[in-house]
Design a protein around this nucleic acid. Structure first.
Lengths: 123, 123
DNA sequence: GATTCGATTTACTATTTGGTTAATTAACCA
DNA sequence: TGGTTAATTAACCAAATAGTAAATCGAATC
């Protein structure tokens, strides 16, 4: 069934803006804890805790390099999350269709020819 | 920037297996609170709370129909979540490639013909 | 009108989360 | 050796979460 402890951990890790920002930083390469902490008005131990959460979710790994503990992104757990969400794409596309219908109807009433933006275009 | 209260709420809502199961149920159509609660060894108020979380995240909406408050799936907020995750696809695909390389290397050394599972196959 | 049914609200509890400061560990540097 | 730097651990706190049981609300039914 859909009960996945991995998914629990992944989504919970992503639910915090600080942690998402950390992952975004790591997307541009390995970073030390200090580098990661720099942009935040937050103590170092707070960052360490966030990193622990990300680590338990498997989203980062940490190495050793002198005093530094460089973090690297491990995005693979996101795959399961993406797959889970994907199941619901049909529904949000439907809701776009309903919006389209509505706008179409409006346009019909106004008999106005202004072009509508197309939805659902895969990046 | 990546600081999205909407994303916070969406990921937080998805971090709970009960709530994911509720969304999965709703994928097959509208359901009353009682119907949603049935599979869980949990009190009704607990389910009400979970529904509140989902509602605040915009993932469901509730109507009125006599005593029932039928819930329906509103998957559109998932789009932003999917887009966010998508940014990291490159990384997990890289990690698969690294695994492939590693396994390839192993196979080379062992010169053993056992078939490898292919990754990245969409369900 | 009284009762039942579906659902929510209220009040309470235990646990988890996100942060703090202070102390500690471990490696480098002079 | 002594000092600085990077990071973690420990102890603590406030707020949020996830659950409960009991009371309440509103619509339907007898």
């Amino acid at each position: 069934m859909g009960l996945s402890i991995q998914l629990d951990a992944t989504f919970a890790a992503l639910a915090d803006p600080t942690r998402r920002a950390i992952l975004a930083k790591l997307a541009s390469g390995e970073k030390s804890v200090k580098e990661l902490a720099a942009p935040f008005a937050m103590s170092a131990p707070a960052i360490t805790k966030h990193l622990k959460v990300l680590q338990r979710a498997g989203l980062i790994s940490q190495g050793r390099e002198a005093q530094r503990r460089p973090c690297r992104l491990e995005a693979k757990p996101l795959e399961e999350a993406a797959d889970w969400i994907e199941e619901y794409r049909r529904f949000w596309e439907q809701s776009f269709d309903r919006l389209d219908d509505y706008l179409q109807e409006l346009q019909g009433k106004q008999s106005e020819g202004k072009k509508r933006k197309k939805h659902g275009s895969k990046k």
